[in-house]
Nucleic acid binder design. Sequence first.
RNA 1: GCCCCCAUCGUCUAGUGGCCUAGGACACCACCCUUUCAAGGUGGCGGCACGGGUUCGAAUCCCGUUGGGGGUGCCA
Length: 483
Amino acid sequence: MTNGPRFRFAPSPTGSFHVGGARTALHNWALARRLGGTLVLRIEDTDEARNRPEWTEGIIDALAWIGISADDPHFEGPIFQSAYADAHVAAAQRLYEAGAAYYCDLTGEQVQQRAKELGTTGYDGYSRDRGLEPGPGRVLRFRVPDGSTVVCDAVRGEVEFDNSTIEDFVLVRGNGTPMFLLANVVDDMSMEITDVVRAEEHLPNTPKQQMLWEALGHEPPRWAHVPVLVNEQRKKLSKRRDKVALESYRDDGILANAMVNYLMTLGWTPPGAEEAGSEIFSWADLEAAFRLEDVNRSPAFFDEKKLIAFNKAYIRDLPLDEFVDRAGAELPDDWDRERFRAIAPHIQERLERLSDAAGAVDFLFVGDGVDPELDEASWTKAMTPEWSSSLLGDVTAAYESLPAERWDADTLKVTIEDIMGRFTTETGGAVKLGKAQAPVRVAVTGRSVGPPLFESLEVLGQAESVRRLRAAVTRADEPTAPD
RNA sequence: GCCCCCAUCGUCUAGUGGCCUAGGACACCACCCUUUCAAGGUGGCGGCACGGGUUCGAAUCCCGUUGGGGGUGCCA
């Protein structure tokens, strides 16, 4: 429990957790912690969500993944919106009794009909002075006062709205249930929220909320509307069209730290990034430096390429043991973990995602006596030089006759260097190791790219390495099809 | 339609009137290093939407234009 400012995060459970939501949650979290305040998690437990408790659990999990832990003293909740149901009704009643709201018996269709006839849009205040009593089918509307409403926003400054452009909006439906707008304000008041930090899309609704706070006799919270996240078409990231589920990135092998770091740099750059020549920062540094006033006001494109770049950096910086554990968890169960540990240091700085680990080392795990899948193009290219076939044969023979105790990366390398010295290129130059290793690499791994070759051979072992080399030699000897 | 927000390299941004010949990061390209690929190093490409003001001086302030986005429900 803390007594600093109180922030809130209010996701509606929909089965997946939006990356944009993750970012605003992070903003709130950074501020709550740095300012010695609290982040209150309030969940909209709609009827649908109540029947799917896993949705709520998903939110808690997702938050925990990005470091917003329910165990942290700065965290409060989750609180379910339904807990305040009575307060919603009571607030509506108070507003009505104070004359700040009135009942109206027009249906939605009738409202539209009138607007059409009057040549206006929206509700025209028809029942403002009709003094209607509450009754079935009658909605409670807020009496928007004259004048204007100024929203003081930490990222946008003062935004003024002319109240005449805001219609007398509905607070309570004809069936007696409160509208979300009212519920939201009442919830925030009940939770004693002092700071509302959310996405820019809510800015146009803010004057309505502020008027409600005031009509209910409360000082409105400090507002902050951060820019939305957009796709390449510059449209707000949508669940339908874009990959927005935080958990999908987690499942793809994105590290939480990388995601958090990347999300925080959208719309904001930590001071010192330029001097550092890097935007990679620890959460502690991000939290200490984050200021709403410094947040950029324009929408930001969620660039997966940059996320990947961050992820590579974070994977690279993982302690080896942790890398082995985490990447190992992505591997098929029957793969030898000791063997993976042996090759792990050589793939760690090459992976874009944790989940790429299997594909990077699969040639070590296909089993003895089994050839890895061969990439024909790589084979053809590697075997194109005049010397390649002979060199492959010589290396195979040399590796085969190597004493078992000398089957190590250094010896393997020296051996091939020794052999390649006996060959010259078609232009008479020396054969370089970069070229000479190609036939061996394709022979053993099936591909032209992969972890360092000699280290891979060492891990694969002499018997299987030589067997694959022999198979390749045989293949190289096969006459090519006539033209 | 009405209301609101936004506008610096392809992308994310630094920049709050002179330090800007506009800096960094990601991406891309080249070279170096090199055991392929990565990583690392060096260099390159590339931007203040447009038009008016204000000012000795504008990416920065003001107005307009254009463009983009969001909101506008008896949805949440």
